[in-house]
Design a protein around this nucleic acid. Structure first.
Lengths: 106, 106
DNA sequence: TTGACTAATCAAGTTTTGTTGATATATACA
DNA sequence: TGTATATATCAACAAAACTTGATTAGTCAA
């Protein structure tokens, strides 16, 4: 069987991190550049603990990095995870193209 | 603000469909080509109703198509949704690359 | 018709995710 | 020190997703 380039579990983690509107909005917001939590809560009109939760999911998946500076925590997009995601999707794409021949069964 | 190429909600649907191990395994299985549910349940050692559930999620997101032939339902990968996914990921990638300049805040 | 077979759907229960408000931790500054 | 500020974490609850077993719907063949 052809396999996805990255392990299933890792792929699930990547996709799960992106399967939430708040988290995608966070990434969109971070396109503007590195920002601290206070700016993010401001921009997104979300409570601090809610964002903290979602930031953790994105960070655990590798999509963002954090950096402390004094009392502030700065978050930014980490291109590596996006790269990894791209790899998975590219495999999926190749696969989709080749998966046209029908097998009868039953 | 820069925006993702596809609406947030649509992106969430796409990513959510891929954020489950069973569903990714289903797609991997479908790489082999069009298959009926009975072959899929066989190959994946999963119950019929469970697969039916996951097939529906994948179908609703657009990743697979179905086709009835007699009593059998044949499923196959639909390259269009994968294409759409690729678009989203490409945007994310471009964005990740450009999102390096830091903004101070607070 | 009826019976057998394939797959979808449904209802009930379980598990996972997300939200909220409160508390803890870390840093800075007076 | 003590106090204020920024953020993480936790516990309790709510909501969404998944699983299971049973039922239903569609198709075929006798």
């Amino acid at each position: 069987m052809v396999a996805l380039s990255v392990s299933l579990k890792k792929s699930v983690t990547l996709f799960h991190a992106l399967s939430d509107e708040t988290r995608l909005a966070l990434l969109e917001q971070l396109i503007e550049g590195e920002q601290c939590v206070c700016e993010l809560t401001d921009a997104m009109k979300a409570t601090q603990s809610r964002l903290s939760f979602h930031l953790k999911v994105l960070k655990d998946a590798g999509f963002i990095r954090d950096r402390r500076e004094g009392r502030w925590m700065y978050y930014s997009i980490d291109p590596d995870a996006v790269e990894e995601l791209e790899t998975v999707v590219n495999t999926l794409k190749l696969v989709a193209k080749s998966a046209v021949s029908a097998n009868r069964c039953c």
